[in-house]
Design a protein around this nucleic acid. Structure first.
Lengths: 302, 302
DNA sequence: GGCTTTCCATCCAATATAGGTATGGAAAGC
DNA sequence: GCTTTCCATACCTATATTGGATGGAAAGCC
């Protein structure tokens, strides 16, 4: 059964005649006549009453006309939707983001820009740490994730750097360290540190510890915090200092300041990661916007 | 675009492989491969990602799969519905009935039986006099009508006799006529008659007047009633006697009686009338039930 | 009443489309 | 390294669609 037959039938019903419908289709009249017979045979009942004056649909034919008209429209819609999904204009994007980055204006701005630009792509943001994001992407529970330090040996994953971040020393504004900012890590030997649990983000944790060890000491941890917001509050309360990605400072409370250290040069690229075989065009669209944003901020800086 | 292509595509998505889908369809693998290419070309975007391990739908393909699965189901439904309409199992039947007959148990029984037997045929009953019913049928505002004396010269209309009715004299139970029931029309000369307006049902009116004229007199009309129910009430009130179809007595109030007259032999067939070219099977179904009812009542009588 | 026109249906030939066979390449399992 | 299992391409055949010619039946028009 070809869709053509349904269109032929519809034209005949609209024209109330086979011969004039044949001119409109266009098709030779006997061919159209034959196609209508085949259609009726396939449906299993008469749909048209033939007469000298022309054609009238039977009651069954009228209902079938309405139904197939609607169906053909919906089919066209289905094709259009498929194309729009393939173009990244429609569908959904399940995106992992760390809680920390949901506080960062660059990131929220990016997401908002995406929502504005592609309103018909349902953006489902889930906040997860880097490791669980990678897992969720592999299990196809996420389409993409914004995270630090994706596994480098896995070429089933694609990566794209969204922002180059770096680490900063965070202290209370009222502290001794704030009054005389240190230049190098070694100057922090003996300071009280707010730290975080290794289990959640082992790669990041280990790289950071390694940086301290190169400076010749291990930080003296007086307090652990589960997330960046908590750690900032603890710093503000004067419990000690900490090391955080610079971006995090965007959402910092009053009373904390950050300082760049010469030898704390751990590159901290925020990566967008997705499955190579997902081929989800909406991911591509997100990158496009991120690049446009980066460009815009570069311009603003220049 | 053939519906087959959509089924091929669906099978491939379900089997997650072209070759195993080809076995299921069944089709040779290259043919199926080709059909998928043609489908993607027609839709205008890739729907499947090919790999050595098999086939996975793209995001567009998944959406297209869902859409076309639904559409194919609905198409089958449309075909089924067309067949059921053609079989008189589904659809609607706009039926004209005179007000008078809506009081008659045989008629309401017939309609109820029809509703029970064909619950998916929406029965739209409209109460109209005989003449307006014929007009409405011609204008295709009614599919069929139950009426007296359809035009006999119009072969665009089909007729079927539902019930053979006859006329009876109706009097008050307390009246002189009821105590000594007349046998012939002539005996009614000089009686007070309740009558009805000619304009609504001229054919019936004229036939009735004609019957009186053959009996040698014109009825002495003391009161006019617009419908049978009113006329029965006027008779019950003792204002006079009247002539009505016997069926009407089914809904008569207390205090009226009917009498058969020898020479009031005007045949009064209640006809089901419909357009010859409507070919609505539901009409046929209604006749079937009417005939079954008539048979049943014949049996009951015997 | 005959002639023309306008319907739709049937028959047959041409052609477009779908499907089968043969084959190739690439990856994975033994 | 061989076999198996994928999918794609090339080519050919069978089937189905289409066009052309023709016919019949009814309606409009001299």
């Amino acid at each position: 059964m070809d869709f053509k037959r349904l269109r032929y039938f519809q034209t005949v019903v609209e024209e109330r005649a086979i011969s004039s419908a044949a001119r409109r289709v266009p098709l030779a009249q006997p061919a159209l006549s034959r196609q209508l017979q085949l259609l009726e045979e396939e449906v299993g009942t008469a749909l048209l009453t033939r007469s000298r004056h022309g054609i009238r649909p039977t009651a069954a034919g009228e209902a079938f006309y309405r139904d197939t008209r609607r169906l053909l429209g919906e089919f066209e819609q289905a094709k259009r939707n498929a194309r729009r999904i393939a173009d990244g204009q429609l569908g959904q994007l399940r995106l992992g983001v760390t809680v920390m980055h949901l506080w960062v204006p660059q990131i929220t701005g990016l997401l908002n820009r995406f929502r504005e630009r592609y309103p018909e792509v349902t953006l489902k943001v889930e906040s997860l740490l880097s490791g669980p994001q990678v897992e969720a992407i592999r299990r196809e529970q996420l389409d993409a994730g914004m995270l630090f330090f994706p596994p480098e040996d896995d070429d089933s994953l694609c990566r794209h750097c969204l922002y180059e971040d770096h680490l900063v020393l965070v202290t209370s504004a009222a502290s001794r360290l704030a009054r005389r900012p240190p230049q190098r890590l070694a100057e922090l030997n003996g300071e009280d540190f707010i730290w975080f649990d290794r289990s959640a983000t082992p790669v990041y944790h280990d790289k950071l510890i390694h940086a301290f060890q190169r400076a010749g000491f291990t930080p003296h941890v007086v307090q652990e915090g589960t997330d960046n917001a908590t750690m900032l509050c603890l710093v503000a309360a004067g419990m000690g200092c900490t090391i955080l990605p610079a971006m995090t400072m965007a959402g910092a409370p009053e009373g904390v300041v950050s300082h760049r250290l010469e030898d704390l040069d751990l590159a901290l690229p925020l990566m967008l990661v997705w499955r190579r075989d997902s081929g989800l065009p909406a991911v591509r669209r997100l990158i496009e916007i991120a690049e446009a944003e980066a460009l815009a901020s570069d311009n603003a800086r220049a």
